[in-house]
Amino acid sequence: MYNALNSHQPKVVVIGGGTGLPVILKNLKNHHVDITAVVTVADDGGSSGVIRDYINVVPPGDIRNVIAALSELPQTVLDLFQYRFNSKDQFFAGHAIGNLIIAALSEMENGIFDAVQYLSKAMQVDGHIYPAANEPLELNAEFTDGTTMKGESEITAADKMIKRVWVETHDKKHEPQAVQQVIDAILDADQIVIGPGSLFTSILPNLMIKNVGQAILESQADVVYICNIMTQKGETDNFTEADHVRVLNEHLGKNFVNTVLVNNREVPSEYIDHQRWNEISQPVKHDFNGLREMGCRVISADFLELKERGAFHNGQEVADELMNLIGRPNE
């Protein structure tokens, strides 16, 4: 537990991927904390997937968004970094400039980890951004019907109930491993934050890297899970909050989640544009008793932000609660 009388910044490690991670990081940046973002490298969709297919680098999309969230550069520069070509050019159409920069640096620096450290300095990042591994990983899933499938987008599109997921290197000659800086950050953390994000395709790919999962189990930090507000089609249909945590615990073989942040504000069904946000289906069901049976402290509050006809986490409210949990007054 962080002591406010101490002069050191509390160390917060946030693990995940997808669109939820930058929202939390951008708001945590406003607090006097030492942030480390551990970002998934198992994405295979969109511009990231096309770049990965061409030059076999770690998919850069999630990393790009995290860099933009933690950067201190002017917004005009960030807008350029995030700009996505709408040209009809066969190669550039749909690509974000930041993805191309990260891909180029990965070749120049012989790996994604050093590339991101170099770019973090150039982009004046407030904190640390660590790819979960220094090489692209392939996500695999086994479904409850016994079939298996490879690839993040394919797994979600299969629309089957997932039993478990794991990650592999491309050559399958060695186990995926995180670099030592990732492990050190987890072991030295005051707080480890998991989520929000797609349970099986954004969060678990990080935890399934063996030394990452082991470090989380060994850490003395409070492990906080930010539960998704909505279920995700093809991944967590009809899930309760306890179902999310149960899946996390089963994958690491131990009840390791200490605290769960749960949104308690009702999502107005008439507001949600289900056609636009076709990856979501319904609000995650409450099961506070199920969470407590797994040893979780439950923090239930209004974490909802309604925008663009969708339901999202209010990053400021979540960041404020994370600071409350480590005993630091909000600033």
Rank of each mutant, 00 (worst) to 15 (best):
Y2A: 12
K11W: 07
V12P: 11
V14G: 11
V14S: 15
G17E: 01
L21P: 09
I24Y: 06
K26D: 12
N30V: 10
H31V: 08
V33L: 14
D34V: 02
A37M: 09
V38D: 01
G45I: 03
G45H: 04
V57C: 13
P59N: 04
G61D: 02
N65C: 03
V66N: 01
I67T: 00
A69R: 03
L70I: 02
E72M: 10
E72G: 09
L80K: 05
N86Y: 08
N86K: 15
H95K: 12
I97V: 15
G98K: 04
L100T: 10
I101Q: 00
L105D: 01
M108F: 00
I112T: 10
V116Q: 00
Q117W: 02
V125Y: 01
G127I: 03
A133T: 13
A133Q: 12
N140K: 15
A141Q: 14
D145M: 14
M149G: 07
M149V: 09
K150E: 12
E152I: 07
I155H: 10
D159M: 11
K163M: 08
R164T: 15
D171F: 13
K172W: 09
H174C: 14
Q180G: 07
Q180I: 12
V182M: 02
Q191E: 07
I192H: 00
S198N: 04
L207W: 05
L207N: 06
K210A: 13
K210D: 13
Q214Y: 09
I216F: 01
I216T: 03
L217M: 14
V223D: 00
Y225P: 04
C227W: 06
N228M: 03
Q232W: 06
F239C: 01
E241I: 04
H244F: 08
V245C: 01
V260Y: 08
L261G: 05
E266Q: 14
E266S: 14
Q275M: 11
R276I: 11
I280M: 08
N289T: 15
E293I: 15
G295D: 07
C296P: 00
C296E: 01
I299A: 00
S300Y: 04
E305K: 09
E305N: 08
L306S: 01
H313L: 07
E317R: 15
V318N: 04
L322F: 10
M323K: 05
N324A: 06
L325A: 04
R328G: 06
